[in-house]
């Protein structure tokens, strides 16, 4: 009986310890992987240029383009891997940053307009 109780106690303690480790890992994990709170960036398109021209972003951030020009514009990856499609005057387009959103982009309608997104490490 006492051996059974001891074994049961030991088992309970082991499970509690495992649970504690798992809980601790889970509660710590988000802080280690996403050391920053997701940021909301805005790129203003004005006078046929992107402002800012260069933007550092992290996974989980959002980027919103807002077109202040009369002419419609796009923000399109140079390798065409992503595209906001046409953004009309005072309209916006928002993306959630993934690994795809790194590098130079341009306006499909006005190819002289260029800018870049720099994907920073999250660690």
């Amino acid at each position: 009986m006492s051996t059974f109780v001891n074994r049961r106690t030991a088992l309970t303690n082991t499970m509690a310890a495992i649970a504690a480790v798992v809980f601790a890992s889970v509660s710590v994990w988000p802080r280690n992987s996403h050391a920053h709170a997701p940021a909301e960036h805005t790129v203003e398109i004005k006078y046929f240029d992107y402002h800012p021209k260069s933007l550092t972003i992290r996974l989980g951030d959002t980027v919103t383009w807002i077109n202040r020009d009369i002419a419609p514009h796009t923000a399109t990856a140079t390798d065409k891997s992503w595209d906001t499609d046409t953004i009309k005057r005072n309209d916006t387009f928002k993306i959630n940053v993934t690994h795809d959103h790194s590098g130079e982009y341009f306006c499909r309608h006005h190819p002289a307009m260029t800018a870049e997104l720099i994907l920073a490490s999250t660690h």
Binding site: I70, A71, P72, T86, K88, R89, R108, H109, H110
Partner: peptide, 17 residues
């Protein structure tokens, strides 16, 4: 074609404004 489409798009937008 791309240039011409841009001309239509932009000049139409200016005229609308």
């Amino acid at each position: 074609h791309a240039f011409a489409k841009t001309m239509v798009r932009d000049h139409t937008a200016v005229n609308e404004q």
